[in-house]
Amino acid sequence: MSTKEKVRERVNVKEATTANNEIVVYNDDVNTFDHVIETLVRVCDHTPEQAEQCSLIIHYNGKCTVKTDVYEKLKPQCIQLLAAGLSAEIV
Results as ranks from 00 to 15, higher is better:
D34V: 10
V43H: 07
K67V: 02
E22V: 12
T18I: 14
R42W: 03
V30G: 06
Q50L: 11
V30H: 07
L81D: 02
I58A: 04
K14E: 08
E38L: 13
N12F: 15
V25Y: 04
I37F: 00
A51E: 01
D29V: 02
N21Q: 12
K6C: 02
V43G: 08
A51V: 00
V70H: 03
V43C: 08
E72Y: 05
K14R: 13
V24R: 10
K14I: 14
V25F: 07
I90K: 10
Y71L: 13
K63R: 10
H59K: 15
V11G: 06
D69N: 08
L40M: 04
V70P: 03
D45G: 07
L40Y: 00
L86F: 03
D28P: 03
S2Q: 12
S55Y: 02
Q77K: 15
D28H: 07
H35V: 06
M1S: 13
E22T: 13
K14N: 15
R10I: 13
E5W: 05
T32P: 06
N27W: 07
N20W: 08
K4L: 10
M1A: 14
T39P: 05
A16Q: 10
C54W: 01
K6R: 11
D34M: 11
V41Q: 01
I37Y: 00
N21A: 14
E38Q: 09
E49P: 00
A83Q: 11
N31R: 01
A16N: 15
R42E: 09
S2P: 10
E15Y: 12
R42G: 05
I23Y: 08
H46L: 06
N31W: 04
N12K: 10
L40Q: 00
V41F: 00
L74D: 01
S2E: 11
V11M: 09
H59I: 04
R10T: 13
V13I: 12
N31T: 04
H35A: 08
H35F: 03
V91K: 15
A19K: 15
